[in-house]
Nucleic acid binder design. Structure first.
Lengths: 215, 215
DNA sequence: CCCTGTGAAAAGGTTCACAGCA
DNA sequence: TGCTGTGAACCTTTTCACAGGG
């Protein structure tokens, strides 16, 4: 049997780490990988690795480990990474452009094929290899480039509007960097990364320690 | 009583969202806030809001809600946001510079006071208002600026080295954007954000839907 | 009647420990 | 002997549902 019914969200969130770890091990010439080794390079513990992988199928050999190449293939397939998912970035300011220059996206199957910006000076030009279009052109941009994922890198005030347009254009997977709550229908998945929020969580653990700043 | 013993991690991770939501409500002139309203602007449900806040203390009034201003104060205090935590960014490439231009950090109490880069052409200059120093100067930079948090924006190969130097310099809170596992002692907290990993998680949910890319 | 604060129940995730196969 | 695969125990988090004060 291939592809078990439901894979827990916590497991899904770790599959990319295993993939990253496997790539590292494969570069170093690994043929077989134990749950211990994979745990090390993925930064988790071995029990978790085994439980997680058991949700995909039984791809290991007792007493030996997993075939690195084959395991990589199966995780890739589960993640849909076998495919390429073109991305459109909404808001081409500092952050948007940094994302465009980040080779990690294209390398891992998420090429940024277009950007949307409201600035008339930018629209029609190509920056960092990415053609910039006006918001009203979004439907066409999505269709022409087979866009699968939208990234929100606009100021927070413009984020909900950008999300609404993406959804209108048929996009169902959105990643947002805007520090605001975004409302989407149930069938649209959205992941938010708020950098300042992350720092504040770190800040919590600083409290109670030594005093900071210009005390 | 003020400040309950242990606040669950899941709660800590949501406190910044409440803070963000409260700021929004306060700007709109809110005096009192119900768990329902706060839930809306924070993007969670009301039961969670009440449970989370109950871990900080009993700051609400039955039949009425929470005093917005006072609640904001208490959450800020719990998060240590009352203080300012200076940040050093390691690796001042595209991503590092985008972070420096992101006003959200300084606005929320995390000013980027220095950057570290290995490029001799950059060292000694000031880019985007941030002075750039060589890795060997890190200890002094941390001391002079009372740095509390280090951000890793280097290429993945250089990330562990940057982390090691930060720890040597006395930093105990690190946020990393490098797509690699980083090893740190138990008393150092590290949060990793891997943008490609986030996209791959989105990709998982795309699988099984419509076919992507250039067929 | 309204909304908080909280025990209790349910769900989800992690770790343990070992049977079973190579 | 070595390592996977997995039930069972354990822990965390979420949700429910309602008592109790304004």
């Amino acid at each position: 049997m291939t592809g078990h019914g439901h894979i827990p969200e916590a497991t899904v969130a770790r599959l990319p780490l295993y993939l990253r770890g496997l790539d590292e091990l494969l570069v170093n010439g690994a043929g077989t990988v134990s749950s211990d080794e994979l745990a090390d390079v993925a930064g988790v513990n071995a029990a978790k690795v085994r439980k997680d992988l058991s949700h995909l199928g039984t791809y290991g050999t007792r007493g030996v480990g997993y075939d690195a190449e084959y395991l990589r293939f199966e995780i890739s397939r589960a993640l849909g990474v076998a495919n390429t998912w073109p991305v459109v970035v909404c808001g081409f300011g500092n952050l948007g452009r940094a994302l465009a220059n980040h080779t990690g996206f294209t390398d891992r199957g998420f090429p940024i094929l277009a950007a949307i910006d409201t600035d008339p000076e930018k629209v029609g030009t190509t920056l960092d290899g990415v053609p910039i279009r006006a918001p009203r052109e979004l439907v066409r941009v999505v269709k022409d480039n087979h866009i699968a994922i939208g990234v929100i890198a606009t100021p927070p005030e413009a984020a909900q509007d950008a999300v609404d347009r993406l959804i209108e254009a048929g996009i169902r997977s959105i990643m947002s960097f805007a520090p605001t709550v975004l409302v989407v229908p149930d069938d649209v998945e959205i992941r938010s990364v708020d950098l300042a929020t992350e720092l504040q969580i770190l800040g919590f653990h600083l409290t109670g320690s030594d005093s900071p700043g210009s005390g």
